[in-house]
């Protein structure tokens, strides 16, 4: 009984996160796309937990790896978006990005 319930719930959860795919397609900003992927990531972890409860305990190990690497794509995104791809938005922001922004204004 419970196994069928959890599998059904996992299916509904998949439908829920499928709706977030729209946000990846539409954007408009890169951050929007990234956060929709994050939503699908945490939804995916929840799906593994439900599948584990539905009678496949090994699913939890996949959930564990997904959880451990949940923020990896976000870190990669932040890096790629940063100064020369090797910075940190907080560091860029505090020092020379401000100079960069001033330059940008001068060009306008």
């Amino acid at each position: 009984m419970m196994a069928a319930w959890f599998t059904g719930l996992a299916a509904l959860l998949l439908l829920t996160i499928a709706a977030a795919l729209w946000r990846i397609w539409r954007g408009p900003t890169a951050a929007d796309r990234m956060m929709a992927a994050q939503l699908i990531g945490s939804g995916g972890v929840a799906v593994t937990l439900l599948l584990a409860a539905a009678g496949q305990p090994a699913a939890r190990d996949v959930g564990l790896v997904l959880a451990l690497l949940a923020a990896f794509a976000a870190v990669g995104f932040v890096k790629a978006a940063s100064h020369r791809g090797a910075g940190d938005p907080e560091a860029d922001d505090a020092s020379d990005a401000r100079a960069g922004r001033a330059e940008g204004r001068a060009h306008d």
Binding site: T29, A30, A31, D32, M34, M35, Q38, A70, A71, A74, V75, F77, V78, A81, S82, P89, E90, D92, D93, A97
Partner: peptide, 13 residues
């Protein structure tokens, strides 16, 4: 972590 990082990038972009 990623909430703070993505929020910051969204702020800059």
């Amino acid at each position: 972590t990623s909430a703070q990082l993505v929020a910051r990038v969204a702020l800059q972009q």
